[in-house]
Design a protein around this nucleic acid. Structure first.
Ligand SMILES: [Mn+2]
Ligand SMILES: [Mn+2]
Ligand SMILES: [Mn+2]
Ligand SMILES: [Mn+2]
Lengths: 218, 218
DNA sequence: TATATTTGTTAGACTAACCTAACTTTATAT
DNA sequence: ATATAAAGTTAGGTTAGTCTAACAAATATA
């Protein structure tokens, strides 16, 4: 059985190389950064994960998940998102509070628990952040998503998900009037730095390109 | 913040010395046995827990919880029993399945989670095994309980709780027709080894003294 | 009370997960 | 093509939690 730490490494690799991936392989440094450890620490773990046939990896080479590693990673993601949904739907947690607790709950080992939880929640398809919830077989539709930064001036779009799950970011999102399914009108974009003028429910705001890169729309 | 391991030691000490305690102090060996570690391991932890002012302990002396240690222990017990109740009431887990998963869930750190969970469950007072659930202040009524082995021949009593939470024991309990609130009539007792003849819902069974010691009745 | 048994402690070793400091390889920019 | 910078690795060390083997103290027994 995998340790919590090993599970966290697989999940991070999944996010870096599979889900919303710009590229299909990851590097030691970015992986370490995502997990808040030093590259030397990540390097130790890479050797162990390779030994367990969970990742493809050669010294000085790029990293990717094996099909076994991917299966494990998706299982953690599934648990994470089902727990987030539980906290949000049943326990009155807010958007920005669910992620942190789900980081702990995702490591509870009990197949029965997660099956029953899924049933209890009515087989939800997306979590409170708009992310797809993998089914029991590990199937997951990777929605092709545009970011707000890619929307042309004058167009209107709908918020379908957020990339960053941190409380800081989500509270900021809420403060400009946004939530899942919000309609966003793009009023203007500065060529210089990508800063955008947007309108949500009649309220106008100015957001940075970095902000817009973290909002997925359709 | 306490580690999961430290939490498990405090909980074990609580069970040994506070709840249903024959005696108010514990020894290294029985503590180690309860946690499935070697006495040498437990000894190391005792030094650490003493350092953190969670237990009273002197070399070669007996062990007991400080008020701080007791407070922490009760908090774990509270979480354990609320989670057991959740699994039983909301997720269709059976009597004998809840304990093992609750052993993991009890270590999730989030005061908000446990408050909301308690509310969601309707502020339950007892868990699926009949054990009292401490409230948010750490208050817990320690019911004075008799065991089935103490009931006189000819008398009838009601099962209010079980001492052993293991799946093996609970499945045995179910197999003789027993559950929470079952009426038990004591038909006979062998002087030699305490073996008892009992009747539950018209069904007669013979149970050992050890079995009867693990059934709490009123 | 002397001896045997039980209980508890210490010393030394191991693994997982982390670190820093030094080094090597690969990539980038003159 | 070289020099610098970035990325990645290695060596050696720490802490938590575990173990075995040897020892010491306390308790029970003859
Ligand atoms: Mn999340
Ligand atoms: Mn999410
Ligand atoms: Mn239990
Ligand atoms: Mn219980």
């Amino acid at each position: 059985m995998l340790s919590q730490t090993e599970e966290n490494y697989l999940k991070a690799l999944f996010h870096l190389t599979e889900e919303y991936a710009d590229k299909p392989e990851a590097g030691t440094n970015e992986l370490a950064a995502m997990l808040n450890v030093k590259p030397a620490t990540a390097n130790d773990m890479l050797k162990k994960l390779k030994e367990k046939k969970l990742i493809h990896y050669e010294k000085y080479g790029k990293i990717s998940l094996t099909s076994l590693g991917k299966k494990q990673a998706i299982d953690i993601v599934r648990k994470h998102r089902l727990w987030e949904t539980f906290l949000y739907e049943k326990l009155e947690f807010t958007w920005d509070e669910v992620h942190e607790v789900a980081e702990q709950l995702e490591h509870i080992h009990s197949p029965k628990l997660i099956e029953k939880l899924e049933k209890f929640l009515g087989y939800p398809l997306i979590d409170p952040h708009g992310d797809a919830i993998p089914n029991a077989k590990g199937e997951l539709k990777l929605q092709a998503r545009k970011t707000l930064s890619q929307i042309a001036v004058g167009k209107t779009c709908k918020l379908v998900a957020v990339r960053d799950n941190s409380a800081t970011f989500l509270q900021y999102v809420v403060s400009v009037g946004l939530g899942l399914s919000s309609k966003i009108k793009v009023l203007n974009r500065q060529e210089f730095d990508g800063t955008m003028e947007i309108e949500v429910n009649g309220k106008k705001s100015s957001v940075s390109e970095r902000f817009a890169n973290n909002i997925f729309v359709a």
